[in-house]
Amino acid sequence: MLRFTAHRARWVADETWHPDQQSRWVDNGHYELSVPYSNDKELIMDILKYGPDVEVIAPDALKESIKIQLDRARSQYG
C-alpha cells in the first residue's frame, strides 16, 4: 500500500496503475493506493518518481527495497 500526500493525491487519483488497484481517500487529504504486482522493479521506479510525496506502507519487503534505493541515491551526493 502506498500513501500519497494531499499535495500529490489529486494527480495520482486520476492515474490507473493496475486494472485491479484499490484506493481510498484518507481524512487528512492523503490518498492510499494498493496495486498487485509480481516484479517490484517497475513499481519501485514508479514510486521513486514521487519522491517525498509518497510513503510505502506495506509490504515490508517493498518498503525495504525503497529504503535501499534511496540510500544508494543519497550516497552519491555525499
Rank of each mutant, 00 (worst) to 15 (best):
N28P: 09
T5K: 03
W17Q: 00
E32H: 13
E32C: 14
T16N: 01
E32L: 12
H18S: 00
T5W: 03
P19S: 00
T5A: 04
V12P: 13
F4I: 05
H30R: 15
G29K: 08
H18W: 01
Q21P: 01
H30C: 14
D14I: 04
D14K: 15
W11Y: 15
R8D: 08
L2D: 06
R8T: 10
S23G: 04
Y31V: 05
H7N: 14
L2S: 01
D20Q: 14
F4H: 08
E32A: 12
A6H: 13
G29F: 10
L2I: 04
W17N: 00
A6G: 06
D14F: 11
L2G: 01
Q22M: 06
Y31T: 04
N28Y: 13
R24W: 14
V26M: 15
V12L: 04
H30Y: 13
L33K: 01
A6T: 07
R3E: 15
R24D: 15
A13N: 07
R10H: 12
V12Q: 07
S23M: 07
Y31N: 02
D14G: 11
N28C: 11
Q21E: 00
W17D: 00
R8H: 10
P19H: 02
R10E: 14
T5C: 03
R10D: 14
H18D: 00
D27C: 08
N28V: 12
L33E: 05
D14C: 11
R8M: 14
T5N: 01
H7Y: 15
S23W: 11
